[in-house]
C-alpha cells in the first residue's frame, strides 16, 4: 500500500522541553566526552558573559529525534543537521518546532523538514534540517 506522505507546510506538534539541569549537563558531558568547562562551570560561563552555563548544543539536537519519531514512526531519519546559533542556558526552557518544506515522491520519497529550537530569547537557538524517508526504502 502506498504510504501517505505529509504535505508541504505541515507543522510538527510543538514540544516544550523542560530546562536542563547542571546534573544533566554533567551526565551528557560524561557520556559524550564533551567536557568543555563552559558547559559545566558557572564561573567560566560568567567570565564568558553568560548568566549560567550553556546547554550542549547536541542535547538540543538530540531532542529532535524523539519528536520526529513520534510524529511519523513510519519514517526514518536519513539526515539530521543543525546550526547552534544562540546559547540556551542551564535552567532555560526550550521549545522545539518543525515544518515540512519539501516532499519529493518517486521510488524513494524524501521529506525535508526545517527544524527550530527556541529558548527564551527571540532568535532561535538551533536551526536545523531533517530528511526523512519511508522505513522500507533502501
Amino acid at each position: 500500500m502506498k504510504q501517505v506522505l505529509p504535505e508541504v507546510g505541515t507543522r510538527l506538534p510543538e514540544r516544550a522541553v523542560s530546562p536542563f539541569t547542571s546534573a544533566e549537563l554533567a551526565a551528557y558531558a560524561d557520556i559524550s566526552g564533551d567536557t568543555n568547562p563552559l558547559h559545566l562551570d558557572t564561573g567560566i560561563a560568567r567570565k564568558a558573559g553568560l548568566a549560567a552555563p550553556p546547554v550542549h548544543g547536541m542535547l538540543l539536537f538530540a531532542a529532535f529525534e524523539p519528536l520526529l519519531r513520534e510524529w511519523r514512526p513510519d519514517l526514518r531519519i536519513g539526515r539530521l543537521s543543525g546550526r547552534f546559533t544562540q546559547p540556551v542556558l542551564e535552567g532555560e526552557p526550550v521549545t522545539l518546532s518543525g515544518r515540512v518544506v519539501r516532499v519529493s515522491e518517486g521510488e524513494t520519497p524524501q521529506i525535508l523538514l526545517r527544524l527550530m529550537a527556541n529558548g527564551t530569547s527571540r532568535a532561535p537557538a538551533l536551526v536545523g534540517e531533517a530528511v526523512l524517508t519511508p522505513r522500507e526504502a533502501p
Binding site: 522541553v17 551526565a27 560524561d30 557520556i31 559524550s32 547536541m58 538530540a62 524523539p66
Partner: peptide, 27 residues
C-alpha cells in the same frame, strides 16, 4: 550500555542506535 546511558542523558527513548550517538566517538 553506553547507548542506554546516552539515551538517559539526552532524555531520548526508542529502541535502536540514536541518530546523534556517533558524536560520542569523537571523544
Amino acid at each position: 550500555t553506553k547507548i542506554e546511558a546516552y539515551r538517559s542523558a539526552t532524555r531520548g527513548g526508542g529502541q535502536g542506535v540514536p541518530v546523534a550517538f556517533p558524536i560520542c566517538w569523537l571523544g
